[in-house]
Design a protein around this nucleic acid. Structure first.
Lengths: 124, 124
DNA sequence: TAGCTATTTCAATACAATTTGAAATACCAT
DNA sequence: ATGGTATTTCAAATTGTATTGAAATAGCTA
């Protein structure tokens, strides 16, 4: 019993043989062109992927979870996580570049706060 | 004019000197122990970071955006993205392992669909 | 069975992110 | 100025991820 297939016909307007299910869906969404139009702009793709990449690390997620309820200075975060300064500083810079946190200098200290974006991404 | 500081007192129950702002916030959230309790479990951190990592790539975000409105077979995705089979297969496997998509065999084809998780993460 | 198509796997290479400790910067207090 | 503390920067070593093309698998049709 052969599967229904739409081979190289007008429906898909493209030289592809695909299962009927898929050919149907393709038609309904405007064919290959309609599909292509669903892809976000390069700019949006870059921003989105950079944001996800910033959250793609357990150490950075820990930092975000610590900042969720209140701003903290670097030394407290360091104390809680028990990691070297330079490592913490690196991860803070990644989070900051991606817009997940902001830092404000207060005398000798830098107080980091989570952003709306950071909260949103922390939820998962 | 010196900044107010809480050096090594009982408030933080820990040998850290921090700005008053931070000492206050620390107190309100149960000190270092309260803070520590805010950190998700290792299991949750692993899952969250793996999910974000899966979305930390523009090629994979393109795939998710194509699947957002309908399931598609590999060959259509390949046609739209214009990338080699093996590359596409690699990215599909990353998305699948992270629970962003599922694949169902239909005869010779494999039809991939986006999951609820995938939709949620695609939104950003 | 044999031949065809769709998709995945593999191993090698190329590329990117992370970790480390040491040195640098910046700010405050004396 | 000097000394001390908090934080960042740097370059080297390590680790992890992405890309490639060739070969393998799996299912269909004849």
């Amino acid at each position: 019993m052969p599967h229904d297939v739409s081979p190289r016909d007008e429906r898909a307007a493209v030289d592809l043989s695909v299962p009927d299910e898929v050919a149907c869906a393709l038609c309904a969404c405007g064919g290959i062109e309609g599909l292509t139009a669903q892809i976000p702009t390069d700019e949006d793709l870059e921003r989105l992927s950079a944001e996800h990449r910033a959250c793609a690390d357990t150490c950075r997620l820990k930092i975000l979870s610590l900042l969720r309820d209140q701003p903290l200075c670097v030394c407290v975060i360091k104390y809680v996580l028990g990691i070297p300064d330079s490592k913490l500083s690196y991860h803070l810079s990644v989070l900051k570049k991606a817009g997940m946190i902001t830092g404000e200098q207060l005398g000798n200290w830098i107080i980091y706060s989570i952003t709306e974006t950071g909260i949103r991404y922390l939820e998962g």
